[in-house]
Structure formats: C-alpha cells, structure tokens
Simulated assay, not measured.
Amino acid sequence: MSDDILLRLQRLEDIEAIRSLKHAYCYACDDNYNTEKLRQVFAPDAVWEAEGFGQYSGVEAICDFFDQVSKDIVAAAHLVMNDVIEIADDGLTAKGVWRNCQPVTTVEAGNYQAAWMLARYDEIYTKVEGRWLIKKLVASIQFTAPYKEGWADLWPQPC
C-alpha cells in the first residue's frame, strides 16, 4: 500500500479510537460516575472543566470531583452526537467537538428532580503508547431545564 493510503487508514482508525474513548467516558459517567473506569480515559495531567462545576487538573482531582458529583446527580445518560474529530499532523494529538443531550436525575434533601441538559464538549486528546486519552475536556452547558417545564424559556435561539 502507498504511504498516503496507510496515513489515511491510520487517521480513520484514530478517529474511531477517539469515538470509542468518548463512549467509554460516557458509559463511566452513566455508571454512577465510576472513577475506576474514568481513570482509564484521562491522561494523568488531564484537565476537566465546566461552568458551574469548576475546573479540575490531574486525573485524581477529576475522579475526586466525580466521587462528589455522584451524590447529587444520581442518574445520567450522556447521549453524545455530532462529533467532529481532527487528528493533528503529528498523529499524537487531536481535537474533538461533541454535542450532549442528557436526561439527568438530581437529588436534593431527598427530593428527586428530572431535568434535561444540553452541552457542547470541546476536547483535546493525546496518544500515549498507542492509546488515545482525554487531555482536556471543556463542557459548555447551554441549558439545564426541568423535565416537566422544558427548555423553551431557557434556550429560545432559532435553529
């Protein structure tokens, strides 16, 4: 095979590996923010941030945050879609953008509340020893709306 075809094939395999990585992140979050599984998707020096939740640097700080958030968000379904993944020319770094439409259940003082959340993920990935990991994840939450009330008043933007 020509070098061009091999390079193109490697890029496609890398994109699919990053998709699988993102899916592993979502499944770990949806498994009560399973920190053992989350440790497997982040680089040791990763950064995770979201407005309203904070910024956490290093895989242990990220996992400590998720241990705490799992007490408030008792159920979640991260439904990611519309990914755009770009592999850098070095083949060792990449960027990705995702949309997340997420039903969540929170608990406060023993009262459960259902809500919808819409967010955008901007991410940077790094390839370490042949394996893709999340280097930086920035979640921009566009709205969190009570299930029964909907989001029209919170997100009235035209399509």
Rank of each mutant, 00 (worst) to 15 (best):
M1R: 11
S2Y: 05
S2N: 14
D4F: 15
L9E: 09
Q10G: 02
R11H: 14
R11F: 03
L12D: 06
L12Y: 11
E13R: 14
I15L: 04
E16F: 01
I18Q: 01
R19F: 03
R19L: 10
S20W: 09
H23A: 06
A24Y: 10
A24D: 14
A24M: 12
C26L: 07
Y27N: 06
A28V: 10
A28Y: 15
C29W: 14
C29L: 09
D30S: 08
D31C: 08
D31H: 15
N32Y: 15
N32F: 13
N32D: 05
Y33D: 04
F42M: 05
D45H: 15
D45V: 06
D45I: 08
W48E: 04
A50L: 01
A50S: 15
F53R: 06
Q55A: 12
Y56N: 09
Y56A: 02
V59M: 05
V59E: 03
A61G: 05
I62M: 08
I62R: 09
I62S: 05
I62Y: 14
D64C: 03
F66G: 03
F66Y: 15
Q68A: 08
Q68L: 12
V69A: 10
D72Q: 09
D72Y: 14
I73P: 00
I73F: 11
A75R: 13
A77D: 09
A77H: 12
V80Y: 10
N82G: 00
N82E: 02
I87L: 04
I87A: 06
I87H: 05
T93K: 10
A94L: 07
A94Y: 10
G96V: 04
V97W: 02
W98E: 00
W98K: 01
R99H: 10
Q102T: 13
Q102E: 14
P103H: 09
T105S: 03
T105D: 00
T106D: 01
V107E: 10
A109C: 08
A109R: 14
G110I: 08
Y112I: 01
A115P: 00
W116C: 01
L118Q: 02
A119M: 01
E129Q: 11
G130M: 11
R131K: 13
W132T: 09
V138H: 13
A139I: 09
S140C: 07
I141M: 02
I141R: 05
Q142A: 04
F143T: 03
T144V: 15
P146M: 05
Y147V: 01
K148Q: 11
E149V: 00
W151Y: 13
W151E: 05
A152Q: 15
A152W: 12
L154N: 05
L154C: 02
